[in-house]
Design a protein around this nucleic acid. Structure first.
Lengths: 221, 221
DNA sequence: GACTTCCTTACGGGAATCCGTAAGCAAAAT
DNA sequence: ATTTTGCTTACGGATTCCCGTAAGGAAGTC
């Protein structure tokens, strides 16, 4: 079992409950931080002092406040941790249940578990901790399908970028210009049209407005 | 101070922390439910048995699960409570911090307090409970401006409905048809155009896609 | 080399939108 | 009664979007 765990969550009710779960799992040391920036510094400090954490449990969304944050979200923190501490196990504990989000975190950042904060959250978190302790991956049942099913709904950076610009009010022509200016290819107006069309098919959207509304609901952008 | 309080929240970590706050406030009886439907039934039952609750503290968003819910959100629950128990004090305790949401809850449903779940959540909740106990309204500082500032960004049901249909992929013509079918007026294609245009101005949106993206971010739809 | 396949790009016609102008109409103001 | 004001509605032209067709080019296959 883990010996030294860092909990990253802005709400103390949550971090307390996580601490209880960890205590039940016989974890000796649990530290809590409320900001992603603090989390990264603490992990770094611990590594320098040769008292490394052997698990990080983190939320994804953090409220902004007076402090200006370097890492604004759990995703940012995870990206930084994976860059500098690639072997450090990470458990995500979040309200979000969009499959695309889970898929990204598992495939791109190789998080070791994804637990949905809901009615069964604490129980699933305990399972996750035990599973990850045995070097295995854990996903909450409601998001498990995110990775098993080979789905054609796979979305790529290009499409995400396209959808973002679309949602920011750029016309198809402007998106084409933008892509050309930023060296993103393909970038002809015709192809932009085609891509948007394909996405509309994929998401069964009636028009571009509908498409953007749908992908926003899915949390893709 | 209150004597009998009902806590409505999906996540037990939150409800436990709320219970602790209530205990610190010398509240004797605190009941907890995880579903909006249960909350409504419990309030109703208590009223029939002449042991009414004198405060409800509720979240806004609830995860769906196997149970098919009558009330899907805290808003639904609040609407029902306000219809049948108009004098019952209600405190909203939610992650959401969109001003429009707060405004709606305060102006339309007359909730007695709105507390944002964030780093200072528990402290603010305690203040809210004490303030509401003295028959006053409490709003978290970060959303207090929601009601004080007379803002021209006021949005009406008609516009919300319009934006919703737009985001669901209906064309302007279809929206016109829809309004005619549902007896909503004005409903000519020309007016629909004008209204959308006005909204685009109001929100400084470049086009309809941008508009829908913006109002979705604001939590208006 | 000839061929298929997949992707990008160009183009054109029809549909939907954007945007300004103007007519119609009702309530309020003078 | 007339005017003003505000809103709804109709219409027309410019632009953008939508959607199909086809040409061009870079792979890989035979």
């Amino acid at each position: 079992m883990f010996k030294k765990v860092l909990i990253v969550d802005d709400h103390d009710a949550i971090s307390k409950s996580v601490q209880q779960v960890l205590t039940a799992c016989k974890v000796k040391t649990t530290d809590v931080v409320q900001y992603c920036d603090d989390a990264f510094l603490k992990v770094k400090r611990a590594a320098l002092d040769d008292v490394d954490y052997d698990l990080v449990i983190t939320d994804l969304s953090f409220k902004k406040d007076h402090r200006n944050a370097n890492f604004e979200s759990g995703e940012d923190l995870i990206a930084a941790l994976r860059r500098d501490f690639s072997q450090l196990p990470i458990i995500v504990y979040s309200m979000k249940d969009q499959l695309q989000k889970v898929r990204q975190l598992v495939n791109q950042y190789h998080v070791n578990a994804y637990v949905c904060k809901d009615r069964k959250g604490s129980i699933q978190l305990e399972e996750a901790i035990k599973t990850v302790a045995q070097k295995q991956r854990y996903l909450s049942p409601q998001v498990a399908q995110a990775v098993q099913q080979k789905n054609d709904l796979e979305i790529y950076d290009y499409d995400i970028q396209l959808l973002k610009l679309l949602s920011q009010g750029l016309s198809q022509d402007e998106i084409s210009q933008n892509f050309k200016a930023n060296g993103i290819s393909p970038n002809s107006l015709s192809t932009i049209e085609k891509k948007i069309n394909k996405l509309k098919d994929q998401f069964k959207a009636n028009n571009a407005i509908h498409l953007v509304a749908l992908v926003k609901d899915l949390g893709l952008i």
